[in-house]
């Protein structure tokens, strides 16, 4: 039986933990709103961008551009986007698990795998494997387009230089506040439309466009921009997912704290009662003895 004082202290401690988790939950829900707004503001841009890229690339040969070049795959690069901070449930663990699975798959097939980690959590996990080629940490807090550009440029330059023959992007996609799933996406080489949705006959008068400058030159500008858009989108989604995941995790933690508190209060009350009973027995016993 723990002493009354021990139980009392424990209850106070758990109460404090509950206070912290509650606060974290509220902070995350406020941040989530911001991140979600940012993500939603970006969607029209990304959507329009894809449309335009597809309408141009549909009548062009893919081999003509460095970023679309398909080579025999010897080295696979995985670009992993996680959050910088933890305490958000299994969110980062799920992304890392997926990345590891992909890594093992390619390694089993005899390919070399290199990693680019965005966010502290993935970097910390993969650091020891020695496969991390580049890391970008401490940027998830308040990221801007230029962060995404730096990452995209680095990965693209490595791809063009032959450092990797295929790049995959893994990030935590935001489905809803209650659901975030890790997602894998082919990143480089950029696939042209025919390869992606062959069968669909929606090429909208693509050949009739007046291009200024030439389509090839436009593609030279568009393709790097496209990689920026992909990375930025991934970062935005991870940002929103992280806060949503933390909200859920902290909500659960707060509930767990409340359970523990009620259990401990029960223990405390029982201990108190038995102490009182013991004391009463003593008094009654003493009085009896005096009488006799």
């Amino acid at each position: 039986m723990p002493s009354l004082k021990d139980v009392k202290m424990k209850i106070a401690g758990v109460k404090k933990t509950a206070q912290i988790t509650k606060a974290m939950n509220m902070v995350s829900s406020a941040r989530l709103r911001g991140a979600q707004m940012k993500m939603e503001a970006f969607r029209p841009y990304a959507g329009k961008f894809n449309e335009a890229l597809h309408s141009i690339s549909s009548n062009m040969k893919s081999g003509a551009f460095a970023l679309m070049q398909e080579r025999e795959v010897k080295t696979v690069e995985i670009l992993i986007v996680t959050s910088d901070r933890g305490l958000c449930g299994s969110f980062n663990a799920n992304i890392i698990k997926m990345a590891e699975k992909l890594m093992n798959k390619y390694e089993a097939a005899g390919k070399k795998v290199t990693l680019v980690c965005v966010g502290k959590k993935s970097n910390r996990y993969f650091r020891k494997t020695g496969k991390v080629r580049e890391k970008f940490v401490d940027i998830m807090g308040n990221f801007q387009m230029f962060n995404a550009r730096a990452i995209a440029q680095d990965v693209a330059a490595n791809f063009i230089a032959g450092g990797s023959d295929e790049v995959h992007l893994i990030y935590g996609s935001f489905i809803s506040v209650a659901r975030q799933l890790p997602k894998t996406m082919p990143f480089l080489p950029v696939k042209s439309v025919e390869a992606e949705d062959a069968g669909k006959t929606e090429t909208k008068q693509a050949g009739d466009y007046i291009y200024e400058p030439s389509p090839e030159e436009i593609m030279d500008v568009l393709l790097p921009l496209y990689t920026n858009v992909m990375v930025y989108n991934a970062m935005l989604e991870v940002g929103a997912s992280e806060h949503a995941a933390r909200m859920t995790a902290m909500d659960n933690a707060t509930k767990a704290c409340k359970d523990i508190i009620s259990n401990l209060t029960m223990v405390y009350n029982k201990a108190r009662q038995s102490a009182i009973t013991g004391e009463l027995m003593d008094i009654v016993g003493g009085a009896e003895a005096l009488k006799g």
């Binding site: 335009a52 141009i56 008068q205 009739d208 466009y209 007046i210 291009y211 200024e212 400058p213 389509p215 030159e217 436009i218 500008v221």
Partner: peptide, 19 residues
Amino acid sequence: PGYGGDFGVLANHAPFLST
């Protein structure tokens, strides 16, 4: 401000793409 200098677009312009 387009690639080759400023350009103007009026209603019913032909399909056009520029940086």
